[in-house]
Design a protein around this nucleic acid. Structure first.
Length: 230
DNA sequence: ACTAATCTAATCATACGCGGTATGATTAGCCCATTAGT
């Protein structure tokens, strides 16, 4: 622990105290906070809070100029080697220890700020993904509804066709392929039974059109594109 | 391997402005912090 005495010479720390025994020592098991409180209380009850380094017990804020110079230096290099520390301290009229502490705090606070920003970005992405999922679920529901309608229409057509023609191998009476997709597949290729479109066709005018192409707003196409499915 | 210097993370204490935030300072490090010089 001697290195800390050297690093923080003005600190009110008694190296001979069992509190500061290196590597835990006698203080092992005692909560640091309780230890500090006790130490602080002992100090306040003692000689009136005077630091043993003779410094001002009250915390002094760094001037704007000092902070600006430290910030400038921090932007150049986050780590602080001894030479730079001593030079900065001399330049700003500070204790090298103060410069070291300032850099330590600055690094810590910079890191927490970065983490906060990262969290914000991730949260934004998460929210967008949730919204996207809702849209996809809505789209799936719409597709299922349309599939049901299509299947009903198909059943009607088949029963109507059965009365005046014999079909086989998936072809109709005219030998055309009606549907290559599985009825149970939500995204299968099938006939376009879009209301309105169907009205302009005769019973035998079957079209071979992918389901997604039946949507005038191309919304399905957009979603598929997003996922590289098309 | 040993040691000093330095680091991170957590926390405390105080300044500034009125409860909470910003910031300087302190402490521990536990399969015993890591890094660099000797």
């Amino acid at each position: 622990m001697e290195q800390y005495d050297e690093l923080f010479p003005s600190a009110c720390v008694d190296s001979s105290s069992p509190i500061m025994v290196p590597n835990g020592g006698a203080a092992l098991g005692e909560r640091p906070r309780a230890r500090r409180r006790r130490r602080r209380a002992a100090r306040c009850g003692g000689d009136g809070g005077e630091l043993d380094g003779g410094g001002d017990p009250k915390k002094r804020r760094l001037s704007d100029e000092q902070v600006e110079a430290l910030e400038l230096s921090f932007r150049e290099e986050r780590k602080l080697e001894t030479g730079r520390k001593v030079h900065l301290a001399a330049e700003l009229g500070l204790d090298p220890k103060q410069v070291a502490v300032w850099f330590q705090n600055r690094r810590a606070r910079h890191k927490s700020k970065l983490l906060e920003e990262e969290f914000g970005k991730l949260k934004q992405a998460h929210d967008a993904a949730i919204l996207h999922k809702c849209h996809l679920e809505n789209e799936v529901m719409r597709l299922k509804e349309r599939l049901e309608i299509t299947e009903e229409e198909l059943a009607r057509l088949r029963s109507a066709a059965g009365s005046h023609a014999v079909s086989g191998d998936g072809g109709d009476a005219m030998g055309r392929v009606v549907c290559s997709g599985s009825p149970s597949s939500s995204f299968s290729t099938g006939t376009c039974q879009q209301p309105g479109v169907r009205d302009h066709l005769g019973d035998d005018d079957l079209l071979y059109v992918p389901d997604y192409a039946c949507y005038p707003d191309n919304s399905v196409v957009e979603w598929f594109s997003l996922y590289g499915l098309m």
